[in-house]
């Protein structure tokens, strides 16, 4: 590494200690790998009808890395070649993260009650929402409910008030999605009549989401 190079990659410097501690299983995770994970999660989230497992750990690592990079760039001249290129990359990463979080918020706002109900029945380790998102969803639901109550529901006969259950908006898990298999997956059920197909690595398919949601979860396939 040359003298003029002020930005050190996460993988080969002493800075990585603190990041690694947060990721228990994958000890030698590089910033590059984290970025890949975040980008895949982003693409999956954009294409999935329901909200997927949150990636708070990975986002935190990525944001830490971005902050670290910005710290290093602080003393550079704004017209320095390094500054411009790193700045461009950081903008791209920020865009991915913002788009990802925005997409999740949109789903939370659309399917609020449904998501909250589902979350209640999940184990701590399987929660789909990050603690912040969970708080947001709860507050959003309360506010909407309060608002409805205030402007309309209180003037309605009891009949209508009792229909909270029917007002729940649910995602259509049977909607069709495009997927790409990351690895060979044998015997995937692809139709209502239990028809099975072997997915080869790299192959692409259109299929109802529900039939492959566990493959997405296990990272055996990704949405495109």
């Amino acid at each position: 590494m040359s003298e003029s190079d002020i930005i050190e990659p996460l993988s080969d410097s002493e800075h990585n200690g603190e990041y690694e501690d947060q990721v228990e299983e994958e000890e030698l995770i590089t910033a590059q790998k984290v970025l890949e994970i975040v980008e895949t999660a982003w693409q999956n989230e954009l294409c999935a009808p329901e909200i997927l497992q949150h990636q708070a750990d990975m986002l935190e690592l990525m944001l830490g890395q971005v902050a670290h990079m910005e710290e290093n760039m602080k003393d550079l001249d704004k017209n320095d070649f390094r500054f411009i290129v790193h700045q461009m990359e950081l903008e791209r990463i920020r865009y991915v993260i913002a788009s990802y979080l925005r997409c999740r918020l949109q789903k939370i706002e659309t399917f609020t009650r449904h998501i909250l109900n589902e979350e209640e029945s999940r184990d701590v380790s399987e929660k789909r929402l990050s603690p912040e998102e969970s708080k947001y969803a709860q507050e959003y639901a309360d506010n909407v409910e309060q608002y409805f109550q205030h402007v309309a529901l209180q003037y309605m006969p009891n009949m209508q008030r009792a229909e909270a259950e029917q007002r729940i908006v649910r995602p259509n898990l049977l909607s069709h999605v495009f997927i790409k298999a990351n690895v060979d997956v044998p015997a995937v059920v692809v139709g209502v009549d239990d028809e099975e197909v072997d997915l080869t690595a790299g192959s692409q398919h259109i299929i109802p989401y529900q039939l492959v949601s566990d493959l997405i979860h296990k990272n055996q396939a990704q949405l495109i």
Binding site: D5, L10, A31, Q32, L35, E89, I93
Partner: peptide
């Protein structure tokens, strides 16, 4: 210019 170490790779 010397190599740049971007987050997405050098």
């Amino acid at each position: 210019f010397d190599p740049l170490h971007l987050i997405s790779g050098s």
